[in-house]
Design a protein around this nucleic acid. Structure first.
Lengths: 343, 343
DNA sequence: CTGTTAGCGCATTCAG
DNA sequence: CTGAATGCGCTAACAG
């Protein structure tokens, strides 16, 4: 472990003072061309690499952005994170990632940890809690950008239009004649669940109908859970004729449930996936899906952050809305077909 | 942006010197109980949080580990990263993540960046290059742990036993009577490809056979590619009767190709997936898969790293081998069945 | 334009 | 046991 080259040694090698060396390296202030040449040459010769920690110490800025996410392994989040990382890397920022593992308590700890590490900004991915006070408190110290959270007008972030998406998907099913549609998504604790349920109800309302409360199942996002949930729903007298399922795991559970109970998609039951995944694309039948561009989400998060990092001055809070698209595939059919099949 | 509380203010509040405060906070050296009590009380009252950057500056250790990965969005990697993050977080280390985005040139830049940020250790996920010199060079400065790389006996890392896995899967197919098996996996540039091809050949050799060279397709891992590859393979006279496909994307491409050419799995063609994914589990028919525990891989990487981080002294290089399991599902059948079907 | 100096916040000597 | 002093490597003031 040979000790590293410092700017001091570069200065000596270049025959200038340490201050001049620093200025030459950073091209800051007044430096002669000759000095720049000598210093850069010396730096290259010695293989000098500035010490980012010492720089941070002095400049009070770490050049790192913290990203808090509930579950790194979620393929949807992973795509978003990739885009964030790409954009941040291009701008010269490092990315510090921590996962709350869906543990609400960890969120606060990790935020403290980020603060101690003096991250220049914080990106809040989809997380457990939705605590405005917490956000305000952090925002006093550094820029904060959030995804799919409701922090009022003072919050900056990216928001997927789950309301419009759920509404569109529900209308599509209603137009096909379905009236008993099951909605499986995490609940009203978090913004996406709230918006989806609201959009779902709005679509019903537009048709002069009301959703069947029992068919809105807003629980944990686990495949086993969705499986048993699907079974119990199908066994009742008011069995749904269509499913709106969030993500790969719930979708998978429902599909398994249908197979288990001998229902055929789309003849007996229609299925729409909220979020487009490998599974929805490649399953037979392929699954009609509500999709939105995850790269755009990630890039938008990063841009929002970079904007606030560049400008010293306060930037107005802003919100970027991402719209969803309904990709029609093979998993939906008219409600009448089902009645025939199960009569 | 109120300036943060420093140890100086804590010391003043506690009525002790800054040195005593530091010792009390870290419980290092000789400190009286009274001092500890006063300092901790003052720290809590003021909401003091030690400045990690200043600590790093002084202790020459950042408390952060760098993780280099080729593609964050790959669901398999994402699971590994999750386990790494979890273990590191538990040990109090932060995780700095950078993705090479499959761009070989970025690897070196990012490693330099990590060094400048003084990461305490470096975890090399599956990446483009496999350069022993590079590794040795980094290893002089900090512990390095790698995944699925061949760096000779001096390298420390986790290695999945792709050789045994590919051999077992191939034997399974050979025992079913298949002799023209297609292997679709990235090539010999990287360890996993090398090992798989070797295991594939070893299985053939054990049956006194040789694989058909044309059926080993080691190219990029893209779905579109796998699709056209599958089409061209099936159109030839020597069409394979079985496929061994790496990962979700290649598997998906091959499955699409089969559907496109009207082949039925497993009647016409047998399929094994290398790596178990949502798709292989939930597809109909479900896909026989070669699987290994991704959490264990991640945890092992982290443990190897932590061990080297804790011990100041050099630790012997070591290698952890992860074994694979063949999960039998519905996608494989005897070769004879196919002959019947296509005769 | 350049050299010198003073800290950033902390852990760690070394005297008391 | 504790206080005062030192410096990690660097940048930003300040004089020259």
């Amino acid at each position: 472990m040979t000790s590293r080259i410092t700017i001091r040694e570069v200065a000596k090698e270049a025959g200038v003072s340490i201050g001049t060396a620093s200025r030459a390296l950073n091209r800051a202030g007044r430096v002669s061309e000759a000095a720049i040449a000598a210093v850069t040459k010396a730096a290259r010769k010695l293989g000098y690499e500035p010490d980012a920690i010492a720089q941070s110490m002095r400049t009070r800025s770490s050049g790192a952005v913290g990203l808090l996410v509930s579950d790194l392994a979620n393929p949807l989040y992973a795509q978003i994170i990739t885009a964030v990382e790409e954009a941040l890397q291009a701008a010269g920022y490092a990315l510090l990632i921590a996962s709350t593992h869906n543990d609400g308590k960890r969120e606060k700890n990790l935020i403290d940890l980020f603060r101690r590490r003096r991250v220049d900004g914080l990106i809040l991915g989809p997380c457990e809690s939705e605590n405005p006070k917490l956000l305000e408190q952090i925002a006093e110290h550094m820029p904060v950008v959030s995804l799919d959270r409701d922090f009022g007008p003072s919050g900056t972030g990216v928001q997927v239009d789950h309301f419009a998406g759920a509404m569109q998907a529900t209308q599509y099913l209603l137009n096909l004649g379905h009236t008993r549609i099951a909605l499986l998504t995490p609940g009203t604790m978090l913004r996406p669940g709230r918006e989806r349920i609201a959009g779902f109800e709005a679509a019903y309302a537009q048709h002069g109908l009301k959703p069947v409360p029992k068919l809105i199942r807003s629980e944990k996002s686990a495949m086993e859970f969705a499986f048993s949930e699907a079974l119990s729903l199908m066994s009742g007298a008011d069995a749904p004729t269509a499913f709106l399922c969030l993500g790969t795991r719930i979708l998978a559970g429902v599909l398994q449930g249908m197979r288990h109970t001998g229902r055929v998609v789309p003849n007996d039951v229609s299925v729409i996936s909220i979020g487009d995944t490998d599974l929805s694309q490649l399953f037979s039948p392929s699954i009609t899906s509500l999709t939105w561009d995850l790269s755009v989400v990630g890039t938008a998060l990063a841009q929002l952050m970079l904007k606030r990092l560049e400008r010293d001055a306060e930037v107005e809070p802003e919100s970027i809305v991402i719209t969803t698209q309904l990709v029609l595939r093979e998993s939906c059919g008219p409600a009448v077909a089902r009645k025939k099949a199960t009569a």
